[in-house]
Design a protein around this nucleic acid. Structure first.
Lengths: 186, 186, 186, 186
DNA sequence: CATGAATGAGTATTCATTCAT
DNA sequence: AATGAATGAATACTCATTCAT
C-alpha cells in the first residue's frame, strides 16, 4: 500500500484516515477492508513493508584497506537510508504506537535496529579477521560507535522533523571513527 | 494536572480524551477549559511539568576521588530518573507529536536532552580541572558515553514499554565507563 | 432536504441542531455530512431550494383588459406565495444571518426580491405597450406600489409570526392600485 | 447595558455570549444575573433601550412653507437615524428572534415602526390643516411614501450589512416626494 | 452586593467499520 | 470481487446559569 505508506508517514497512525488512504489508493474503503481487517493491521503491514525496503541497504563493504574510508562509507550509507527514506518519520510513528501496537514496534526494532546492528557486528568481525582491527568484542564496539552517531544525528532528527544533516557531518563522523580506531585499529 | 499527566502518558496525545482527563481530575470539561484553552495547551503544560520534575535529578556530583564510582553514580541517577519517572513514556508521546506540536517537542528536547547533556559537560569539565581526567573536549566525551548508554538502555526502552533494566546493567555501565576512562583518565 | 427546510424555518440557523435535522430526515449526522460539508452549506442549499420553489409563482399575467383586476391578481399571487409558502419565515432567518452568511442573504435577495421586482417591471412595461398604462418609468412605478404593499402586509408579518392577512386586504390592495392607476392609467 | 447593546448588535442574540457581555461591562456574569434573570431578559431590556434612543429623533418639523424641503428634511432625518444609529442591525437581530421572543419584536415594532408612522401621520395632518396639502387620508399617504422609501433604502440595507446610502439618494427622495405632492399638494 | 469557580447539557464534526448490491 | 452509502460512537469545545464565599 503505497498510499498507506505515504499517509501514515505524513500523519502518524491516529491522524491518518482510512478514507483518505483508500481514496489515495483509488479504491473504496470497503475494498481496503477486504484486504486488511482493521486499520491496525494495515498499519502493521505498511510498517513491515517499509522496514523491508530499508533492510537491504548497507549490505556491501568495500574491500578497500583504508579502514577510515570503509567505516565512513558504512556510516554514510546508514545515514543516507535513515534520512532519505523517511526512516526518521517511521521511527516516530512506530514509537508513538508502542503502547497500543507493541508487536509492530517489536518487529520493527528487530528488523531495522537489531538486524542492522548484527550486520555491523559481522562486518566488524570480518575486519578483525582481516587483521585490520585488533581482536575485541565487536558488539560493544558497534554499540559505542552506533551510539555516538545516533546521539549526534538521530536523536535530534527524532525531535525535529526539519532536522537536516549539518555541513560538518563528515568531520563529526571522522572524529567518532578516529576515536574508535585509536583504540581498536590493529 | 496530575490526571492529564497520567492519561497522556498512558494513551498519548491523540488517544487521550479531554473528557476522561476531566473526569479523572474530578472536574467538568468546562472547568478544565477554564484553565487550559485547548487540548494542545494542556498537553504542552503537562509535558513541561513532567520535564521540570525530571530536571532537578542529577544536580550533585559526589566529591569522591574514585572516578569510576563517580561516573557510575551519575549514570545510575540518569537511568533512575529515566526509568522511574515515566520519562520513556514521555519521550514516546512527545516524539509522536513532533510533526503536529513541534514546539512542545523542541522545548522538551531542550530541557531533558540538551540541558542534561550540558550539565554533564560542565561536570566533566570540573573533573578535568580537578585533574581526574585528561584535558579533552568534554562535549565529545559526553556524546560518546551518553550515546553508548542510550544505545543499550534507552533505545530498547523506547520500543518496548515493558523493558526493564537488565541484571547486568552495572556491568555494562562499567564497561562503557572503563572504555571512556581508558582513553581519558588522567 | 425537507427536514432541514422545516427545521431551519422553525428554529432559524443558530437554534437548528444538525442532529435534529438528521433525525427528522431519518439519517445519521454522518450521512448528512456526506451530502453537505457543513451546517452553513446545508443552510445555503436549503435557502436556495426554497427560493427556487418561490420563484415560479407569478409567471403569468391574465390577458384581461380590466387593469384593476389584472393588478389585483398579481398582488394577490404575490401575497399568496409570500404567506402560504413560509416566505416570511425564510426572510426572517436569512436576515438573521446577514452578518454571518452574507452570500446566502445576497443570493436570496437577488432571487426573491430583485427577480420578482424585475418580473413586475417587465409586466408593467408590457401593460404600457398595450396602452393600458401611460408611458412612465416602470421601475419607479413598481417600487411605489411594491413599497406600499410591503409596508402594509410584509413588514407587520416580519415582526409577528402569527400575522395573517386582514379581512380588508382586498380593500387595501384596491386603494393602492387605484392610487397608482389614478396617476398612470392611460 | 452599553456592552450588551454593542455585543447584541454585533453578533445577534444567539451568537452573543453572556460571558463576553459581562467582561465588556467589567462585571462578573454572576453580577449580571443579579440584574437580569436571563439572557432573554437582558436582550429585551437592551432592545428597548436602543428603541428609546431611536425614538426621539424626528420630533420637529421645520416651519418652512417649502413643502418639498420640509418633506425632504423629514425623510433625511429618518434615514439618518436608521443608518447612523445601528437601527438596521437592530432590525435584523430583532426580526431574527421573532419566533422565540415575539414580545420583544412586538414592542420594537410598536416603538420604532408604528410610533414613527403615527408621528408622520400627525405631521401630515398638520400640513393638511395648514392647507399645504389637500385633505386626504394621511395614514394612507404616509404608507405610500414610507413604503417607497423603505423599498429603496431599508430593504437592501436589511440584506446587506455594508449597504450605504447611494450618491443619488436625494434625487430618489425628491422623486418619491414629487410623486406624492403631485397628487396631494394643495 | 459582587464574584470566582464550577458545570450539565449541548454543538458541530469526524471516523473506523459494515453491508446490500 | 468491488463499492456506494450508511452509521454508532466519539471528540474537542462552548455556554447560560448557579452558588458558596
Amino acid at each position: 500500500m503505497l498510499a498507506g505508506r505515504e499517509n501514515f508517514l505524513r500523519n502518524g497512525f491516529s491522524r491518518a484516515a482510512v478514507a483518505d488512504i483508500a481514496r489515495e489508493a483509488d479504491v473504496s474503503t470497503a475494498t481496503l477492508y477486504k484486504h486488511f481487517s482493521s486499520k491496525e493491521e494495515l498499519f502493521a503491514v505498511v510498517v513491515r513493508e517499509i522496514c523491508a525496503d530499508l533492510g537491504g541497504e548497507f549490505a556491501t563493504v568495500s574491500d578497500s584497506d583504508d579502514l577510515r574510508q570503509v567505516m565512513h562509507d558504512m556510516a554514510r550509507r546508514y545515514l543516507k537510508s535513515q534520512f532519505e527514506m523517511g526512516a526518521n518519520a517511521l521511527l516516530r510513528i512506530v514509537i508513538a504506537e508502542v503502547p497500543t501496537a507493541p508487536q509492530v514496534a517489536a518487529d520493527m526494532h528487530e528488523i531495522i535496529i537489531k538486524q542492522r546492528a548484527a550486520h555491523l557486528v559481522r562486518t566488524f568481525e570480518q575486519l578483525i579477521e582481516r587483521k585490520l582491527l585488533k581482536p575485541h568484542d565487536a558488539e560493544t564496539g558497534v554499540q559505542m560507535i552506533a551510539g555516538m552517531i545516533k546521539e549526534v544525528f538521530i536523536w535530534p532528527a527524532l525531535f525535529d522533523a526539519d532536522f537536516v544533516l549539518p555541513d560538518n557531518t563528515d568531520e563529526i563522523l571522522y572524529e567518532a571513527i578516529d576515536m574508535y580506531l585509536d583504540r581498536y585499529a590493529a
